[in-house]
Design a protein around this nucleic acid. Structure first.
Lengths: 266, 266
DNA sequence: GTATAAAATTGATATTTATCAATTATAGTG
DNA sequence: CACTATAATTGATAAATATCAATTTTATAC
């Protein structure tokens, strides 16, 4: 239960680190966690004190393996990762994609080890937050605890939205819901929601959606023919969001704020 | 942010309630939350103080509606519920089933309102835990906070297992994974894992798994013909767990503890 | 740059699953 | 108990998707 991580004495001075984090984490989901409005200067230093920067991961590097002991939660700073579980027949099943500002490892707190592996899809850097330290700190800072609970709740909420996605019957409904989901997540981090790069392969997408690669490829082609999107390899442009939403057949993923609000009411 | 619930003065005496809860919650997931080993007698009273018993729900009664403001998390004491979201075309999509000892409402903490509705599948009773009180109490009791985080993490973990289920390609893989999942959950609560009653309709199952009702029905028939299960209406007997697991094609849901352990190691 | 490997696309076919329609079984109600 | 509505099953057919095979494109290594 002792953490070796914070015994690292070669770390740069707090103040400098903090400054960098403050700037870079502007659109990060940990932003709320790291820098609640009400937090005081000394509290902020305490929090900064427990956050580590991992050295960047290269494509296909693992952030953690299946079954590895849980020590920290991670926030994607840049790049992206996929999480996956091994299946009986030696294949892997992709369980999620993690974009900048999103969290990894929350599913491991309960059991003490990671139920899935996390692999970088491209050059990726993450922040590491040793959990024992974070938990200790939440006892001192009630706002921090509240933020942590909110973030975990959001994770549960997001997972359930993805279950809605995977519960869809047709391949086109799944793929369009997937694309809208990615689009929304980019938007939430301050990126364009109508134009973005998919870092994951068609194979990963197919695996994740429970479809054959060929089907996914054909759907991409069809969506292009129908003028719904432009897909140049990994470069995606959403050209007709409305129709995509109709195909997805769910009101969960709409980026239109008015719709989202009306949905929230009863 | 004020809670009207605890202003109820007609509630029975603490000590009596506590006793009942202690006995009945033996196999409840809130057991860990309610009654951590290290908790002292007075702390226990404090905790008991914030737990409410709702009056039992009849079949098709709602525990909460979509969009209703979040106030409490709930634990299923007996019976069962389904959660579902409305889709654009006026249909509903089932997002989960909740068996005795399982939690509801954790997905609502972040946004402050319930993203899905919860409806009783049969006569059902739940415990209600007003969240502001719980959160306040965790500040006093570090063990309680730890348990709460563990439970939320477990929820995330469970959701991801279900995503594995829904990501499966074939109908038979989905249904067998579903049955094994239910079986495991019953086992975890101390019920039989080889014989149980499904409280949800075939329609709900199909909806949840992203399949047509007819397909689900046919799969039930096929599984019976193959001697995998016995399905007399809602009464299910698992007759050949090994083959079911092969069909499910994943090692996540195995109830065999040895397999589970070996899986945990890298 | 070329060679090689990996990823993505496309086509043809077989399998699976949804849909439509009808029947049977079950549960709820007066 | 009969009556009604709902749920579940079964069969036939159409539609969707997986699989197999081949090709093209892109990425990576040398």
């Amino acid at each position: 239960m002792q953490q070796k991580i914070s015994s690292d004495t070669t770390r740069k001075k707090k103040v400098v680190d903090l400054h960098v984090i403050k700037v870079a984490c502007n659109e990060c989901s940990l932003h709320q966690l790291c820098l609640p409005r009400s937090i005081s200067g000394t509290d902020l230093e305490k929090l900064d004190d427990i956050i580590e920067r991992k050295k960047p991961l290269k494509r296909n590097d693992h952030l953690f393996q299946v079954g590895s002991t849980f020590q920290s939660i991670y926030v994607v700073r840049s790049g992206s990762l996929k999480t996956y579980s091994p299946t009986v027949d030696g294949q892997e099943q992709v369980t999620g994609f993690h974009l900048p500002g999103e969290l990894l490892g929350l599913d491991a707190i309960g059991k003490g080890h990671h139920p899935c592996a996390a692999k970088a899809l491209e050059m990726t850097s993450v922040c590491e937050v040793p959990f024992v330290n974070l938990e200790k700190l939440t006892q001192e800072l009630p706002t921090l605890q509240h933020q942590l609970l909110r973030l975990m709740s959001k994770e549960i909420f997001d997972d359930q939205e993805l279950m809605l996605l995977l519960g869809k019957k047709t391949a086109e409904a799944r793929l369009s819901a997937f694309l809208l989901s990615i689009s929304l997540r980019f938007k939430q981090r301050g990126f364009s929601c109508s134009e973005f790069y998919l870092s994951m392969s068609r194979n990963d997408i197919a695996n994740y959606l429970g479809l054959a690669v060929e089907t996914v490829s054909r759907m991409f082609t069809r969506f292009q023919e129908d003028g719904l999107i432009s897909a140049e390899r990994k470069h995606i442009i959403i050209k007709n969001r409305d129709d995509l939403q109709k195909i997805a057949g769910i009101n969960e993923y709409c980026t239109d704020q008015t719709k989202k609000d009306s949905q929230a009411v009863l």
